[in-house]
Design a protein around this nucleic acid. Structure first.
Lengths: 104, 104
DNA sequence: TTTATAAGAAACCTTTTAGTTCCATGTCAA
DNA sequence: TTGACATGGAACTAAAAGGTTTCTTATAAA
């Protein structure tokens, strides 16, 4: 599965916060790091791993390295979750149907 | 965020497979471990951590320890992803609207 | 009541992760 | 062209993760 690395990427509170920050605006490394108590290099490492799995991409703009969130990757993760719970949705749907028919 | 541990749990290929296996039937530790090349205690450790975050629950049935998947937890994870991509869905919707109006 | 099965638990090892500090490099601005 | 800023990179450390093997315990079945 390819989704494992994406889940791993968002399976850490710091990185979850980074996703939250980049969801509206793209930001430079320093701007992102400013929101955390850990050092800038530590944040840079998180960004690097998030780039490696395609969740983020980087654009060099002068001396700033702007990071963009790739929502498609989040949607890819969502599809995996959909598959895994699909069976249960069917079950629940069937249950609902059965109950409705009972009421007839 | 509470979802981080859930994402972490499904952020590993072995554990993803376990979720896939338990989605239809609940199984004992040995039955689960039989599908992997790693040792049974290794699988048991994965199960333990998946239980810790509420993704799995255990039911002792004689000498077997049956594991059940908790789909609610997957749905909780889905809601986080929904939130994080909601902004973009709005953007895309707006774009779609704009394009449609262009065609008028 | 002995034997086989299902599993937990402990002890241990190796690799990865998450963090640090310090230094080098490229770019903007005075 | 000198200084300040924004980063990357290397070297190091501590803790967590993911495995292993061996031993113990509870249950089922012969």
């Amino acid at each position: 599965m390819q989704t494992a690395e994406i889940f791993k990427a968002i399976g850490d509170p710091t990185r979850q916060q980074i996703v939250g920050m980049l969801r509206h605006q793209s930001l430079g490394v320093g701007e992102i790091a400013a929101n955390f108590s850990i050092s800038r290099p530590a944040v840079a490492k998180h960004l690097a791993m998030m780039r490696r799995c395609g969740l983020l991409s980087m654009e060099v703009q002068g001396r700033e390295h702007i990071h963009h969130l790739h929502v498609e990757k989040l949607q890819q993760a969502q599809r995996w979750l959909d598959e895994m719970s699909a069976f249960w949705d069917e079950k629940l749907e069937a249950l609902k149907q059965a109950l409705e028919e009972d009421n007839d």
